[in-house]
Amino acid sequence: MYSEKVMDHFINPRNVGEIENPDGVGEVGNARCGDIMKVFLKIENDVIVDVKFKTFGCGAAIATSSMSTELIKGKTIDEALAVTNKTVAESLDGLPPVKMHCSVLAEEAIKAAIEDYRKKQREK
């Protein structure tokens, strides 16, 4: 049911963990629904120099978390904001229809983390 790429990112997820003193944090989803993704960003000169995630969820939730962090690592904020759930799903060679919401979660978590970063910037 899952592509080889999904399984690869599920078995060996990239960028798992947390960043101490992150420049932006985004958390979306809730435990009741069965998935939560939390993204930590380290940003220098509008470039995402490091990204980590923690996810509570199914195989697809973990794989989309992993893939989405790979897609935005080293990218500018604007480039990261251009990453959509479709990009994440396509990079994983597709997701089963019932799991597309997992890729939405990944996109939303990244957007939330960037929003958090911008808010902090404005407060500075």
């Binding site: 399984m7 998935d35 195989g59």
Partner: peptide
């Protein structure tokens, strides 16, 4: 606690 069943099954 703290984890999801499908990920566990996989």
């Amino acid at each position: 606690e703290f984890i999801e069943g499908e990920a566990l099954l996989l």
